[in-house]
Structure formats: C-alpha cells, structure tokens
Design a protein around this nucleic acid. Structure first.
Length: 268
DNA sequence: AGGTCGACCTGGCAGC
DNA sequence: TGCTGCCAGGTCGACC
C-alpha cells in the first residue's frame, strides 16, 4: 500500500499525536501480523512511553522510552487510525493512558509489527538502500549501482536495496517526469539522464509528501483521511487515458510481475 | 550471483 | 445474482 510519501505523512502525524503518550494496553485481535509471541509483544509495549516516531524506507519506527523500538510495516493495506471504530479489519488496538486509541487495520494481513531492542534485528533494514533525501544518495551512487545491472530502470527504482521507499506508483511517476522509458536498461542511461532522474526522484517524493500522499484504495493518513496526490498522477493507473504532456494514450505493460504505466510517445 | 516468479491474504470489480 | 478471473500501493524465498 503505502510508499515513502504516505508513510512519511503518517509518521509526521503520529509524531504530534503520540508525543509523550504512554501505551496503557495493547489488544491483539489477530496474532498473525506479529513477528514475535503476542505476550512478548504486549509485555514490551504496555506501560512504555513514546519517545519519538521516525521512518526508514516504508517502515514506521516508534521509539519507546525503554530504548526499544516498535517497528510497523504497513506493506500493502495496513492503516494506523487514531480513534475510530474497530471493524473486521482491525488487527490490533493500542490504548493510551489518556484514554485515546490507535487502531491498526489491515485488510490483506500482510503487515508486520514487532518490538526490537536494536533496529538491526529487523533483517529488512540491513539490506535497505539509502534514503532518497539523504546526502549519500547521489547521482554518482546511482551511476555505480546502474553499472552493475542489466535490469530495466523501472525494476531498479523498485529495488529497495538500491534506494529505500520508492514503490510502484512513484517509480512510474518519476520516470514520466524524467521522460525516460521504463524499459531502458539502467546501465545505458547517460550521466545527464541519471542526474535528471535523481532530481525527479527527490522532487516527486517531496511533492507527494506535500499533498499527503496518494490514495488508491486503502491508504489513509493517521486521521483516516485520503491523500491528495493521486489527483496529480500523470500515468499511474491511467491506462488508455491521454498523456497530460502529449495527449497520446497511456500504456500499461508488465515488468517483473508489476504493472508499469507510461507514455510510449514522450518517454524515451 | 543476479534476476524473475510465485506465494503470502483479502476483497473489489468487470465480464459473462 | 452469482460465478470466475484478474487486479491491487510490498516483501520474501525458491529457483533458474
């Protein structure tokens, strides 16, 4: 479900709404999503104060005052909703000492939650590439990564060991803005094209955050609201509609088992 | 070793 | 209405 901009929106909301709250109870309605025994998860959460909330890639990290971390990966359909009514997709209910509640809802049950003492206990974090807004994510680093692969550029953008946080929606949008065909081999990109791509990765993600992310079906922010960026999508989920730049029809192809949307006329 | 594919799970929607 | 098949924002492991 959510990519970097959606998770960043949730993290910013939670940073305010959870500030110095204390987990007074955790009700596990569905143990399937927990990466540890439910009693261990509850024991390490209950009674703990929230220190701060951060993000790594598409994962939400709630720093507990106990120096442990509650790591939440929403994967496809996970939602964290403040207040609201429990429904059939509510998998956990977090109760705070001031009486407020935070629901974890997840239609497809792909989400993962765990409490760890150190972040490197989460295997996923150890293979994750740099954050796109970090200093280390540079055109030079991209060029070095591209040199080593024969894959098309779309597949490389989706590879979280290359850069963290980009998913299918933003991979398509970034390539559209960069006027690059998703089928181009990454290693064939020129220095100038890589620089352009680098700029658009950052610009598109920042713009999406400014619009509180994109809501296709399930994404909601911490207040249960939809994101507004999907109104600005140029190609994603727009097969057969006119390209906003040239008017030719948007095409859909499959790459590495995922849908790619692009304009065959102005993405070269 | 790099790259692709299917599995994971649930539900919405189109087509018949 | 009810069935079938396809599709979905991600990640992981099996396999070539």
């Amino acid at each position: 479900m959510p990519e970097l901009p959606e998770v960043e929106t949730i993290v910013r909301d939670l940073s305010k709404s959870l500030r110095s709250k204390i987990f007074s109870d955790v009700i596990v309605h569905d143990t399937f999503l927990l990466r540890q025994k439910a009693d261990d998860f509850i024991r390490r959460t209950r009674g703990r104060a929230v220190d701060k909330v951060t993000r790594r890639g598409k994962a939400i990290i709630i720093h507990l005052a106990s120096s442990e971390f509650l790591v939440i990966q929403l994967i496809m359909t996970g939602q964290l909703i403040a207040g609201g009514q429990k429904d059939k997709h509510t998998r956990l209910t977090f109760v705070f000492s001031d009486g407020s509640r935070l629901l974890y809802n997840d239609q497809r049950r792909f989400g993962q939650l765990r409490v760890v003492g150190k972040l490197d206990e989460v295997k996923h974090f150890n293979i994750l590439g740099p954050e796109p807004f970090s200093k280390e994510f540079t055109p030079a680093l991209m060029q070095e990564a591209f040199r080593k692969t024969i894959r098309p550029i779309k597949n490389v953008l989706l590879d979280h060991t290359f850069v963290a946080g980009i998913g299918n929606i933003y991979a398509c949008e970034i390539l559209f803005r960069s006027r690059l065909s998703p089928k181009r081999q990454a290693r064939r990109l020129s220095r100038t094209e890589i620089k352009t791509l680098h700029q658009h990765i950052i610009a598109v993600l920042k713009e999406a955050i400014a619009h509180r992310g994109s809501s296709m079906r399930n994404y909601r922010d911490g207040s249960g609201q939809k994101g507004r960026f999907n109104e600005r999508l140029s190609v994603y989920a727009r097969e057969g509609l006119p390209c906003p730049r040239c008017g030719k029809l948007i095409q859909r192809i499959t790459q590495a088992g995922r849908s790619t949307f692009y304009c065959g006329h102005c993405q070269k």
